[in-house]
Amino acid sequence: MKITRTEVEHVSRLARLALSTEELDSLTGEMDAILGYVEQLATLDTEGIVPTAHAVPMENAFRPDEAKDGFTPEQALSNAPDAAESAFRVRRVIE
């Protein structure tokens, strides 16, 4: 086994993703199969190979630090599930 059900449960908490019992069962099998498949990468010698994070060689992209118009508060809040004044409202975080 590449991955256990307990590990899948742990990853679901890291991903902030609630999973049903059935989902946990099926994902454990599916992730195990996929991780078994990707195992083939381990057979390649990559000693000294520089990792590619980005396919086009680029340096940092800079631009002048100038103020520009952005969204109005109304636009920014236009899709909010819950808003109050000019803020997104969520449940109390500190009890």
Partner: peptide
């Protein structure tokens, strides 16, 4: 083992 290794293999493919 996974992400960094894949990025190195990506270099070989490129």
């Amino acid at each position: 083992a996974y992400y960094l290794k894949a990025q190195k293999v990506r270099t070989l493919i490129r």
